[in-house]
Design a protein around this nucleic acid. Structure first.
Lengths: 155, 155
DNA sequence: ATCATTTAAGTGTATATACATCTTTTTAAT
DNA sequence: ATTAAAAAGATGTATATACACTTAAATGAT
């Protein structure tokens, strides 16, 4: 009985360290902290830099369109945008379709992007250097494929 | 002037989609939602399954030791553990060293692990199948290397 | 023995994230 | 034209995450 229990535990217990979810979440935390630390002087975080970049890329766009572009839940984006709006980096206003709210980068938002971009380059290039261009490229592909494989595909 | 502006925007704006941080975060969201959806019937989330697994693996351990094992900020773990404690899956009690709090899996915690493990296997094996064993193995290595490279290395 | 230092943990605060549900507005079906 | 269905968004709730700071206990230097 005692031995059986130990055996079960020893087996099950190691599961966690091969878990794809655990491993990618850990890596994601590390990468985020790294980018955040490099971007810190600009006053925007990595996630915010991404959102501002999307807003700049798309021009005035609805919350839903932005959320699709960022592969983020709409409600997540709503709340993340609130922070940017409070800081004056984007405006959120009513659209022609009155259900829609149009997100738009402000001057201050563009300035923030300009401030953050060189730092982002620093973070990005140092990481690529450390990994090797080849391997980094492969990783980015892997990330994209993982997302494509799993997004909206429970079955 | 107009053209210069557009040129700048067009360049900067594409940055976000090559960003390592954005890409790994997106993939991490997808993977997490996938594992969460498969684990749902067990009543534990992917992150909780990992924490329970760590508690099972280590036996009674301090918050700091657990946090190190999980590569999580100590304060993050404190709060995540609170949820597990409220559900009776772990106990958190004073240690011999009175600064320490000892985390310990309960019977109910072990039951939860037992309930979740087959589901975890299902999620994990389906993902590996879809990626191919070879490629999956490589990814796990990449994740680990990313973490090792970036953890505690702001320099 | 006393006190400065280090260590363990918790709290305040803030962001990031998503699901379930509600409200408002538009679109489609009749 | 009226009403049912769909779409866009926000809110309630809950977890996950980390930094700056505080509190309490142990350790070490004298």
């Amino acid at each position: 009985m005692m031995l059986k229990e130990s055996g079960r535990n020893r087996t099950q217990v190691k599961i966690a360290w091969h878990c794809t979810c655990f491993n990618i979440r850990r890596a994601s935390r590390s990468v985020t902290e790294y980018y955040d630390s490099v971007l810190a002087p600009s006053g925007v975080r990595a996630t915010q830099f991404t959102m501002l970049g999307a807003a700049a890329l798309m021009g005035p766009a609805s919350v839903t369109r932005l959320a699709e572009r960022l592969a983020l839940d709409r409600t997540t984006l709503t709340r993340n945008l609130r922070v940017l709006a409070e800081e004056g980096l984007v405006t959120i206003s009513a659209g022609k379709d009155r259900r829609e709210r149009v997100v738009q980068l402000t001057e201050a938002g563009q300035t923030a992007i300009d401030r953050a971009t060189p730092l982002w380059h620093k973070a990005q290039s140092r990481l690529i250097e450390n990994l090797g261009e080849q391997r980094w490229r492969r990783m980015i592909e892997d990330f994209a494929d993982l997302s494509d494989l799993l997004e909206e595909n429970s079955d």
